[in-house]
């Protein structure tokens, strides 16, 4: 049982975190709050990917003895899986880009309606 929990702990936390973000995106009425929820949501996914990559007893995905001419055999098992890291670098970049655009849009919204509350904006649209 303990092993089970330890093994799945990361996954569950990422799910909880993601749901916090998801809930914020859906039910919070403030636009910036939604963006913050979006941020949390995206980072939760990143946590998940990094959890996939983790390997017990392995070291960073940067070769240790790179320049000594093949003296040390390189074994895949001793390095953490680099691929999810790569994917997540891209995902973080996308996250930042989305954040930028979202904030720009929010500023435009604020300029137009002078509020950030969804309810008030909807009232003004009508």
């Amino acid at each position: 049982m303990f092993d089970f929990i330890v093994g799945k702990y990361n996954y569950w936390i990422h799910i909880i975190l993601m749901m916090i973000g998801f809930y914020a995106m859906m039910s919070k009425r403030n636009l910036i709050k939604k963006i913050i929820g979006m941020n949390i949501f995206q980072t939760a996914i990143i946590i998940f990917f990094i959890s996939i990559a983790a390997k017990r007893g392995a070291t960073l995905p940067i070769l240790e003895h790179a320049h000594d001419g093949g003296e040390h055999a390189i074994e895949a098992i001793s390095y953490i899986n680099p691929l999810p890291h790569v994917l997540m670098l891209t995902a973080i970049v996308v996250m930042v880009a989305t954040l930028g655009v979202a904030l720009a849009v929010v500023i435009l919204v604020y300029r137009k309606y002078d509020t950030l509350e969804e309810a008030e904006i909807l009232k003004k649209i009508k």
Binding site: S51, A53, T59, P61, H85, M88
Partner: peptide
């Protein structure tokens, strides 16, 4: 911190 702990230094 978390990611550094999990070995994802680049991230």
């Amino acid at each position: 911190l978390l990611w550094a702990g999990m070995g994802a230094v680049d991230v």
